[in-house]
Design a protein around this nucleic acid. Sequence first.
DNA 1: ATGAAAGCGCTAACAA
DNA 2: TTGTTAGCGCTTTCAT
Lengths: 339, 339
Amino acid sequence: MGKTIEEIAAELGVSVTTVRLVLLGKARQYRISAKTEARIKSYTDEHGYQINHTARSLRLQRTDSLALIVPRLSNHFFAALAELLEIRCRAAGLQLFTSCCYDDPDMQLQLIQNFRQRNIDGLFVVPSNPQIPPTAAQLFEQRIVLLDRDFGFAEYPVVVTANETSSAALTRKIHAFSRTRDETARFLFIAGNPEMPSIAGRVRGFRQALSELQVPAEQIEICHAPRNGFSEGAAAMTEFLQRHAELPSVLITASIALFEGALHALRQERGGVPPEMILATFDDHTMLDFLPNPLCSVRQDSKFMINAAFSEMEKLLQGTRNPGRHVVAMDLVSRHMDL
Amino acid sequence: MGKTIEEIAAELGVSVTTVRLVLLGKARQYRISAKTEARIKSYTDEHGYQINHTARSLRLQRTDSLALIVPRLSNHFFAALAELLEIRCRAAGLQLFTSCCYDDPDMQLQLIQNFRQRNIDGLFVVPSNPQIPPTAAQLFEQRIVLLDRDFGFAEYPVVVTANETSSAALTRKIHAFSRTRDETARFLFIAGNPEMPSIAGRVRGFRQALSELQVPAEQIEICHAPRNGFSEGAAAMTEFLQRHAELPSVLITASIALFEGALHALRQERGGVPPEMILATFDDHTMLDFLPNPLCSVRQDSKFMINAAFSEMEKLLQGTRNPGRHVVAMDLVSRHMDL
DNA sequence: ATGAAAGCGCTAACAA
DNA sequence: TTGTTAGCGCTTTCAT
């Protein structure tokens, strides 16, 4: 532990106020004598001084730090959000603390309480269920911004992506492509937990687009996995293959982890992924380049999301109370889909 | 902000000690009367109580929290480390705070000071350069554990992977495979910044194995990129292709981001990746399954690393001072390499 | 131009 | 069995 202001003051025979003023660079402003200033400066240059943020926080009732709770950092989308948000916070002189809750509501609640107890000024959170936002808002006196999942709260700022419209656009695109080869393409959509609004939106967009395109119901199958992970994607695909001898012409997954899992299962069960199979997934990744298949993916605009989220937080910290709702557009990326 | 212990005590007409004892569940132990205990319990059940960790920390000179500084969270290996370490810390009742420094030593230093000022109890750090460890150790009074990069400090605990031996094993394996097809395979190794001990180790292992196998120098080319990222991998490959009309028979990269970049450039410049090209990379990923090529990758054992790192930190927090050096073995994973 | 002192909410030592 | 008090290091207000 470094010296405290009091210790420095005592050792130099001046008062804490004087030391503090010099340390804050306000020596001029308060007309501290040049020699006193020089003495203090040379002392701290030699011994160093590290402010005790804990004491400062206790006094100011503020920590100049924010927290972010995401489901997983091993999910690239959330890792990217965390990186960008940390950079944005740093630029504003705030420290960001990031934690994972693995979509476990109890763990998330504990984390929220923990951050609250540590006097974190504001919270960005990807809520695990609809009970989280009100609780978090109460503990954080409204200083929360909801990310990625829109459980329909108008009273809190929220930043989400345009899942439904993007899903519909994706569906129309692969449908059009599939028609060039096969009039009666069969569609398999592997989705995650439908209680998550983002997943529900993706399924809705898919359903709606196909219905508008008048694709008959018997050519459509939707599997709901309990979560958005690799093993769930593999399980869903394995289960599908047990029920159907024939492969779908088009495979769509609601996340890239499901995609990886589904293809893994396909390789296991059928020895490979037929190169003519049309693939589509939410979340983009460079390694999708490795596949020879026609493939369409949906890329989220993390930068835009983070800018929106941070502006909302800034408003909250300044005391403004008109929560914004931001629905960020997504990009379609296609590979091997030239007609 | 919730009620403080003092407020509760005042409102119930008891002393802070009494309230505290009940809150800590030590009512029995200190023989607080049952009715006093009940009164306090019912009060906090109704109004809730959130301890002020800032005040507690100031008093105890301890925050019950640790920090982890990694280069990037969008690097899957570091994201996985962060997740595992956070889980491990949580199990021990500690909160982990994770930050990225983008391998910028100044930013890393600032982060370290920031954590120090916030009274974080101990630091896990992937050092950006050899100046970082001594500084960090001084600020944190030796409570640091170095991860992933071994700059040769015996005085601090360090957990790294066996880069050199794994690289040699990888090289031998792909060399053996290449001999089954071609007696004079040409090897291209794209590495990152050689000042990073992990990269240097990988290059050393590669060089040494090939020299033992008596592969002539003119069949070996090593490109050093300034960093381990996608664009650096692409640039290195583009540059190689400008100098050589012929593709290498074997491509090895020191990280998966370099791998992605290199293949991307190959696709751009030559329209694709020849399926007979032998590929190898450090870091494993499920999406490597998507490639048809013979491929060998090196998987790091994150769990093992984290366990070792956390045990070292526990020793430090208990005051023990015999820093351990852990060199964790890596696994080889191969695809399409059956002879 | 510089100093003294209160108080943020908690813990721990000591008192009663 | 319960109460009182000092002090962690900082900021801020009010005195000189």
